[in-house]
Design a protein around this nucleic acid. Structure first.
Lengths: 112, 112
DNA sequence: AAGTTGTGCAACCGGTCGGTTGCATGTTGC
DNA sequence: GCAACATGCAACCGACCGGTTGCACAACTT
C-alpha cells in the first residue's frame, strides 16, 4: 500500500472542503450523533447523503465505522487533522521565513 | 464588510481543497514565484488557470496581489490558515474530551 | 413469522469546478 | 511608434460532486 502522504493530505483537505461534511465531523467528534440516521436527523439532508459523506470521511481516515448489531456506529479519528495542520503551519513558517529574510535583506543594519 | 467567520472558513477550506491551488500557495509562501506567469511556468497548467486559482486564494484572503508596473505580484497572507487550524483543533479537542468522558465512564466498569 | 427499523448500493440529475482557447488591454523597451 | 511581454476577462467543455429516489437486505421486536 502507498499512503503517499500527499494522497492522504488530498483526501483530508477535500473531505474538509464541504460544509455538510464538516458538520458531520463536528457532530461525531462531539458525540452528538454516531450513526448515519442520527446524523441525518440533525442535518437538512437525507440519510443516503450523510452516508456518502461518511464514506469520504472514512476514506480520509477522519472517522471510523464499526457495525454494532443492525446499526453502524461512527467515531472520530482526528489524527489526519494533524497532518493538515502540519501542512498549514509549514506553509505559514515558510512565509514567515521568507518575510524575515526579506526584512533582514532590506533592513540589515536597523534590525532589532 | 461582514466576513461572517464561517464564510471565510468555507472559503479557506475550499481554497485548500485543490492540489494545484495548494501548490500555488506553497510557491508563493516560499517566495519561489510571485506572478501568474511565473507560477504557470512552474506548474503543468496554463497561465489563465493559475489566474483563476489566484482569484480564489485572494478571495479567501490567503494571498494578496499588488500591481507593480505591468506585472501583478502576489504575496501570502496566511492569517486565514489560523482560522482553519483553530477549527481543526476545536474539533480535535472535542473529540478528546468525548473520549476522556467515555474512558472515565467505562473505567469503573471496564466492560465492553 | 411478521412487521419494523437501519443499513448498503445503484442510478440519476443539476450545478459547480478545473482547465482550455481566444481576444482585448495595458506596459515596457527599442 | 511599434513590437513584445504580462495581464484581465469571457466563453466553452468535460468531469466530478452533492444530493435525491428507489430498492434489496440484515437485524431487532413482538
Amino acid at each position: 500500500m502507498k499512503p503517499a502522504a500527499h494522497e492522504r493530505e488530498q483526501a483530508v483537505f477535500s473531505a474538509l472542503a464541504d460544509p455538510t461534511r464538516r458538520a458531520v465531523l463536528r457532530s461525531i467528534a462531539s458525540g452528538e450523533a454516531s450513526t448515519a440516521t442520527e446524523l441525518a436527523a440533525r442535518l437538512p439532508v437525507s440519510r443516503q447523503a450523510v452516508q456518502k459523506h461518511l464514506a469520504l470521511l472514512e476514506q480520509a481516515q477522519l472517522v471510523g465505522g464499526e457495525r454494532v448489531g443492525r446499526e453502524t456506529r461512527f467515531a472520530a479519528t482526528p489524527a489526519p487533522l494533524g497532518d493538515a495542520i502540519a501542512w498549514m503551519t509549514a506553509v505559514g513558517e515558510r512565509w514567515e521565513d521568507r518575510l524575515a529574510a526579506l526584512a533582514e535583506a532590506a533592513d540589515p543594519e536597523a534590525g532589532r
